[in-house]
């Protein structure tokens, strides 16, 4: 009996750990997009920026043997990809939707080209945090004290983003630009500069999310390994009604259901696997729709100028 209890606890710990890691790349990409959208820019290129980040991170880490350089390369690559979008969509006022989709296609293609010689080579492992005693605590030990460094970074990033957006002057400017670009402009804030920086931040975060996939989650590079996670991140931002706290909840929920459906299959509960594969999407949509029923809150948090280009009439 005791033995069985121990087994269940070990399994529970395994499940919780896997859920957190499954949520992490989504959280990275989504938090960056959240800031970009708060500034009024809809960048549909998240998937492409993730792919570029994933391949550059992997390439830099395996060439130099230093994962930290890989992470930096991924961030820079994500920002470079984002700057392309920013220049075309903001300064040349091209259609944001079209430019974003183009960035996704471009990023996926470019990543295949860059990664050509890295296919089939395993990456270098990144050590997990290990604090004596604490990491060995039952169930919560590894969950709280034994994750890989990226997981902590994602949590810190989410909190920092919340603090920045709602507690600082800079965040207020970002939100003002997203809500009413004309007024912000009239007050003397540079709309385009603010938006460009927000887009760059989005690129950096997407690159980081991609690097998490190619360096930690599955240390390898293959084309299209992001497998649609950029699109899920985009959806999470909308369903989280542009609030970082809800975004964390949404990412965890999505991660939880996608992991639990695999466990349900392995146990053999006899529900069609196709239906179980749909569950993460259905559950996340339903949950976030339910918590978004507060119309007042929603209208306050939706960036009113989202996706609308801004041209200063000087």
């Amino acid at each position: 009996m005791r033995q069985r209890f121990g087994d269940v606890m070990t399994m529970l710990e395994g499940i919780l750990l896997t859920i957190v890691t499954a949520a992490t790349p989504l959280l990275f990409a989504a938090i960056g997009e959240l800031v970009a959208e708060r500034s009024g820019v809809l960048n549909l290129g998240v998937e492409g920026m993730m792919a570029v980040g994933a391949v550059c991170g992997f390439a830099a880490a395996s060439t130099t043997g230093n994962p930290l350089i890989g992470v930096l390369a991924a961030i820079i690559a994500g920002m470079l990809a984002a700057s392309l979008f920013g220049i075309v969509a903001l300064f040349f006022v091209a259609n944001q939707n079209a430019t974003g989709v183009a960035l996704t296609l471009f990023g996926l293609g470019l990543s295949g080209l860059i990664g050509d010689s890295f296919v089939g080579t395993p990456g270098i492992p990144i050590p997990k945090v290990d604090i004596p005693v604490f990491s060995d605590l039952p169930v919560v030990g590894r969950l709280i004290f034994g994750e890989d460094p990226f997981v902590y970074a994602a949590v810190v990033l989410a909190i920092a983003t919340w603090w920045f957006l709602f507690k600082t002057r800079g965040g207020l400017i970002v939100r003002a630009v997203g809500d009413n670009a004309a007024s912000a402009h009239a007050l003397g804030f540079s709309v385009l500069r603010t938006r460009f920086l927000a887009v760059l931040f989005g690129g950096a975060c997407a690159g980081l999310g991609g690097a998490y996939l190619s360096l930690v989650y599955t240390p390898q590079w293959t084309q299209a390994m992001t497998a649609g996670r950029g699109w899920i991140a985009l959806a999470l931002v909308v369903f989280a009604s542009w609030l970082p706290g809800r975004l964390v909840a949404g990412a965890l929920l999505f991660g939880a259901v996608s992991i639990l459906q695999l466990h349900a299959q392995a146990i053999g509960i006899g529900i069609p696997s196709q239906f179980l594969s749909m569950l993460p999407y259905i559950v996340t949509v339903i949950a976030l729709v339910v918590i978004s029923r507060n119309r007042a809150l929603l209208s306050v948090n939706t960036p009113a100028c989202l996706g609308r280009p801004f041209v200063a009439d000087t």
Partner: peptide, 27 residues
């Protein structure tokens, strides 16, 4: 044998998740 249908031919993340789930259940 415990079977998990990934419903994809290629998604490294999901394949890794499936492997973790199977191992956590005793495979």
């Amino acid at each position: 044998i415990k079977v998990v249908w990934a419903n994809t031919w290629f998604d490294p993340g999901k394949e890794a998740d499936a492997a973790k789930a199977l191992i956590d259940q005793g495979a």
